[in-house]
């Protein structure tokens, strides 16, 4: 599915969510639904061409109900299934998240640490990134031993790599040149 189409779906849902004042909760529900469709069993069942259309819609409705989604999000899920766009749900959820963050003045940062970080370290990094971007930063933290030391932060399409692995790579290139 083209990105533009996913953005259209996401923007439509976001407009309704803003009017309802449920932007955050619907975003979380949409994210949950998207993650379910990417699960191997459920996703392959829902997106297989062998499944009749009415069965696909019915299965999507059942899944949304089991997940306890709100009525508007369930309806949105049925629309997506009816338009045969179930496979695009992760892209839609991602676009929705981006629009919501933009609207709320937020930015998401992927933080990779070489060792398990303390809460204080995460706080320090988030603070400095917030000062840098002028937005509220929502961190997604993970540990990557391959970094050897330090951390890598990705924020709004930019990568701030001050890891030892990167420094070693630069030093190796400098020495080998």
């Amino acid at each position: 599915m083209p990105v533009q189409a996913a953005k259209r779906y996401a923007r439509a849902l976001l407009e309704v969510a803003v009017e309802s004042g449920r932007m955050e909760s619907w975003g979380a529900e949409l994210d949950l639904l998207a993650r379910m469709t990417t699960e191997v069993a459920a996703g392959s069942t829902l997106t297989t061409p062998d499944l009749p259309q009415h069965s696909r819609i019915k299965a999507m409705g059942l899944m949304a109900e089991r997940l306890g989604l709100s009525f508007p999000v369930r309806s949105f899920a049925l629309v997506v299934a009816r338009r045969n766009r179930i496979a695009a749900l992760p892209e839609i959820a991602h676009a929705y998240q981006g629009f919501a963050d933009e609207r709320l003045g937020r930015a998401r940062a992927a933080l990779s640490f070489a060792l398990e970080p303390s809460a204080q370290e995460i706080h320090q990094v988030v603070n400095v990134l917030e000062r840098l971007s002028g937005k509220t930063v929502l961190p997604a933290v993970k540990v990557e031993p391959a970094l050897l030391g330090g951390l890598v932060a990705q924020l709004e399409g930019k990568t701030y790599d001050l890891s030892l692995a990167n420094k070693l790579k630069q030093a190796e290139q400098l020495l080998g040149a």
């Binding site: 640490f113 970080p117 603070n127």
Partner: peptide
């Protein structure tokens, strides 16, 4: 401690 130092350096 080294990692802390590196994080502070990053900040």
């Amino acid at each position: 401690a080294d990692q802390r130092h590196l994080v502070e350096n990053f900040v």
